[in-house]
């Protein structure tokens, strides 16, 4: 094929080296592919572990919060409640021996103490997570709205769509706390007077919505703000914990609506 041996030998040598080089390139490319696939797998596992860790951290935070609220609730019920009951009893005993003018004052004081006992009982129930699970979400929310309505400063309404069913107890507590946080925001920041809570029960999902007639805000401001309120952050975290979708819609001057949608309630 080649006119002389020198040319043939050199050509064969170059060809061989070229084949080896191309083979090496194929090996490098294959190695790159395999290495990247393995690296991606490890990265995915790492992300999954981080997500799981975050979830566990959130759960622990909520459990600690729940425990704290329970302790506060018990303290109110066992100590403050007992002390007030004792005061009421003492007032009753004193009233029998007092003059008519003082009796009116004592009756008024007894009524005030009774109201304080009632309010504390409601507050204790509202803080006590297990009570929420016992009462059920609808009843717990209804009680909460009644407390607000009884203050005389707010008008509240509860709208239930679909056939109400029980969610997982942990989910019910989380949803209830989110409702409390939303109402708190509506009163504190939005200066709302009317609050409407909606509970929508569907075959495979549940949606809680809280609508107020407060001053509202521009959601874009909320997104661009680096100091998004702790309440909102906590609500987002809670929603993530139970796998719910959380959204806030508002127009300045036209109130706001907070929605928590829990998919796959089965």
């Amino acid at each position: 094929m080649f006119p002389n041996t020198e040319e043939e030998n050199l050509t064969t040598m170059i060809l061989l080296v070229t084949i080896v080089l191309i083979g090496f390139v194929c090996f490098v490319v294959l190695l790159a592919y395999l290495f990247t696939t393995k690296k991606n797998k490890l990265l995915r596992e790492k992300q999954l572990m981080q997500a799981q860790f975050k979830q566990e951290l959130l759960q622990t935070q909520i459990e600690i919060q729940s425990q704290t609220l329970q302790t506060v609730s018990q303290e109110i019920h066992d100590n403050l409640g007992q002390v007030l009951s004792l005061i009421k009893l003492n007032l009753g005993a004193i009233a029998a021996t007092e003059t008519a003018a003082n009796q009116t004052k004592l009756t008024n004081t007894k009524q005030l103490v009774s109201k304080a006992i009632g309010d504390l009982r409601e507050l204790s129930q509202s803080l006590y997570g297990n009570k929420i699970a016992e009462l059920g979400l609808v009843q717990a929310i209804d009680n909460e709205l009644k407390i607000l309505q009884n203050s005389g400063q707010f008008k509240t309404s509860l709208k239930i769509t679909g056939n109400a069913f029980k969610l997982n107890p942990q989910k019910e507590i989380v949803v209830f706390r989110m409702m409390q946080e939303s109402i708190n925001n509506a009163i504190k920041h939005a200066r709302a007077k009317n609050i409407e809570v909606g509970l929508k029960y569907e075959a495979a999902s549940f949606t809680l919505s809280i609508t107020d007639d407060g001053i509202g805000f521009d959601p874009a401001d909320l997104k661009s703000s680096t100091q998004t309120g702790m309440g909102l952050k906590s609500m987002k975290s809670r929603a993530r914990l139970i796998g719910a979708d959380f959204s806030v819609n508002s127009i300045p001057g036209q109130g706001a609506t907070v929605s928590v949608s829990v998919p796959d309630v089965s």
């Binding site: 170059i14 070229t18 080089l21 191309i22 390139v25």
Partner: peptide
């Protein structure tokens, strides 16, 4: 890599 490995030697 392929192009230059092919003509390098």
């Amino acid at each position: 890599l392929f192009f230059n490995a092919g003509e390098f030697t």
